[in-house]
Amino acid sequence: MCGRYSVVIDEAKLRKQFTKDLVTPTGGLPTNYNMAPTQDGLVITDREPGQLSAFRWGLVPFWAKDLKIGARMINARREGIEDKSSFRKPIRERRCLVIGDSFYEWKREGGSKTPFRILPTDDTLLVMAGIWESWSPKDGGDTVYTYSIITGPPNKEMTSIHDRMPMLLTTAEQQGAWLDRDADLPAILDLLATPPDGTLKTYPVSQEVGNVRNNGPRLHEPSA
């Protein structure tokens, strides 16, 4: 699974990787070294491919009674995603790129767990395949936009750490295809492939990342 990641984004790198005309959130780019479920993350959607938007992490289906279900739907398994009731419509009609710089995963060793930071070897921004949804409360309150990160089997770098990982879209061609609203389902599902070996680099970090109250640059520092 993917239960924590970081959003530490240099705007110049962002515009170079996507487009110089990308519209960013009012107030500038937020920084979060310890992104946790139900917090707002940054996405680029198929509806607004020229805009970076802040959506709540944890997909809430339009039919949900409240937002609580979102905390349990931060990830969507790629296997059978097209048939699951909560995901079958979003995978066809509401896809997004989830933007960050790295994600965290815990490696089990005996009775302990060691957190690792995982990031692209080429120092580009991390682009994870996602789906999104809009949810409106029955009392007429504001619409809430949410997302889920799609996960699948690990590549070589991740195998020794965990048996799941986010599905990454590492090229501009893949990212454009993912946001193509005219793409058919088989073509979309083909994009959800385990990233090639050598795509990622990893190193252990402090146990502090396990507590959502902890934040800041120290969480990116290699552990002793």
Rank of each mutant, 00 (worst) to 15 (best):
M1N: 05
C2S: 07
C2R: 07
R4S: 04
Y5K: 07
Y5V: 04
S6Y: 03
V8Y: 05
I9G: 12
D10R: 08
E11I: 13
L14G: 08
R15L: 02
R15H: 11
K16Y: 11
K16G: 00
Q17N: 02
F18N: 10
T19I: 08
K20I: 00
K20W: 11
K20D: 15
D21S: 15
L22S: 02
T24H: 04
P25I: 04
T26S: 14
T26A: 15
G27P: 01
N34Q: 01
M35Y: 00
A36L: 01
T38Q: 12
T38N: 10
D40M: 04
V43I: 15
D46H: 09
R47H: 12
E48K: 15
E48S: 13
G50S: 07
L52H: 12
S53T: 12
R56A: 00
W57T: 03
K65C: 01
L67Y: 01
I69T: 13
I69C: 11
R72A: 13
M73N: 11
M73S: 05
I74E: 06
N75C: 04
N75I: 05
A76P: 09
R77S: 06
R78L: 04
R78W: 04
E79T: 06
D83M: 01
K84D: 04
K84T: 10
K84P: 04
S86T: 13
R88E: 00
P90V: 13
R92S: 12
R94Y: 06
C96T: 13
I99H: 09
G100W: 02
F103S: 07
W106Q: 08
K107L: 08
R108P: 08
K113G: 10
F116M: 03
I118N: 11
T121I: 13
T121V: 15
D123E: 15
L125N: 13
L125Y: 14
L125M: 14
L126I: 09
L126F: 08
L126M: 14
A129W: 02
A129P: 09
A129G: 10
G130M: 07
S134W: 06
S134G: 12
S134K: 12
W135T: 02
W135Q: 01
W135R: 01
S136W: 00
K138R: 15
D139A: 10
D142P: 00
T143W: 00
T143F: 00
V144K: 07
T146G: 02
T146N: 03
I150Y: 02
N155C: 07
N155D: 01
M158I: 11
M158W: 04
T159N: 03
S160L: 02
I161G: 09
H162C: 05
H162W: 03
M165C: 03
L168I: 05
L168S: 04
L168M: 08
L169P: 07
L169C: 06
L169Y: 06
T170K: 06
A172D: 14
E173Q: 14
Q175D: 06
G176S: 10
A177K: 14
L179R: 08
R181C: 06
P186Y: 13
A187G: 03
L189F: 11
L191S: 06
L191D: 05
T194E: 07
P196M: 01
L200R: 08
Y203V: 10
P204C: 10
S206K: 10
Q207E: 15
N211D: 14
N211G: 03
V212E: 10
V212L: 04
N215S: 13
N215T: 13
G216R: 10
P217A: 12
P217G: 10
L219N: 12
E221A: 15
P222L: 01
